[in-house]
Simulated assay, not measured.
Amino acid sequence: MTTVGADGLMAAATVLDRPADEFVNDTMIEELWAIKAFEHAEIYFNLLSSVDPKILRLTKMDDEIYKLFRESFSELGVSLVTEDQLKSEAAKECWRTFCETFKDTVEDYNYATLIRLDSSKDYSEANSIIVPRVQFLAIELARNREGHNDSIRSNFKPKKLQTRS
C-alpha cells in the first residue's frame, strides 16, 4: 500500500467532502478512502481492546442513534451480521432511511467505514465490509451496550498503530 502521510490525508479529507457525483472511478480516491477506513478500524479496535465497551462514547449523538436503531431494527442481532442484512436491496432501503435521519447531526455520517461482521473477531478481509459511518455507529453502539464486544479486551491486546509518513 502506498503511504500518503499526514498532509496527504488532510488533502484527501478535503477532497472527500465534495459531492460524490463530482468523482469518476479514480483509483487514488478509492485508495485514500481505503486508507482512512483502515486507520479508523485500527483505532476503534484498539479502543475496544483497551476500555470497557459499555462506557465508550462514539459521538455526542450515541443515545439518539442507538434509540432509533433499536426502534427501526428491533429484530436485528448485532453479534453476527451478514452482508445481506446490510446491503441487500431491501436492507439498503431501510438503512438509507435510517442514515439520512442523521445527515445534519452526525459528522461524516456517510463516510466509508469498515465494520466487523462477527463481533467476536478482529478486523480482517473475511470479517469486514464497508458501510456508511452512521450504520457502523448504530451497530457498534448496540454491540457495546448489549455486551457483544465485552470479550474483546480479554481476547485481544491493543496493537501499536502504524505511522504513515
Rank of each mutant, 00 (worst) to 15 (best):
L114W: 02
E39H: 03
S88A: 10
T113F: 03
K54S: 14
R96L: 07
L48H: 06
T97H: 09
W33H: 08
T105V: 14
S49A: 15
I55G: 09
R70V: 08
K103R: 13
E93R: 15
S72C: 12
R57E: 13
S49V: 01
M28P: 00
R70C: 04
D62R: 11
Y111H: 08
M28E: 15
E100G: 00
L56V: 05
S49G: 06
S50Q: 08
L80W: 04
N110I: 05
L76Y: 13
S88C: 11
V81P: 03
L56I: 10
K92L: 13
L58P: 02
T97I: 13
F38I: 02
A41D: 10
F69A: 05
C94L: 15
L56E: 01
I29W: 11
F98I: 04
A90D: 12
E71S: 11
E89Y: 10
S50A: 13
L58A: 10
E100S: 07
E71M: 10
A90S: 13
A37E: 03
I43K: 13
L86V: 03
D63T: 09
K87V: 05
F102D: 00
E71W: 01
V106W: 03
I35W: 00
N46F: 04
L56D: 01
D108T: 09
T27Q: 14
L58F: 14
G77P: 04
R57Y: 03
Y44G: 02
N110Q: 09
E107I: 06
F69G: 02
L76F: 15
Y109R: 06
T105H: 02
A34G: 06
D26Y: 05
D63A: 15
V51W: 01
L86M: 09
A41G: 10
F38P: 00
D84S: 11
N25F: 08
A34H: 03
W95I: 10
L56Y: 06
E75F: 08
W33Y: 11
T59R: 10
K54D: 01
K67A: 07
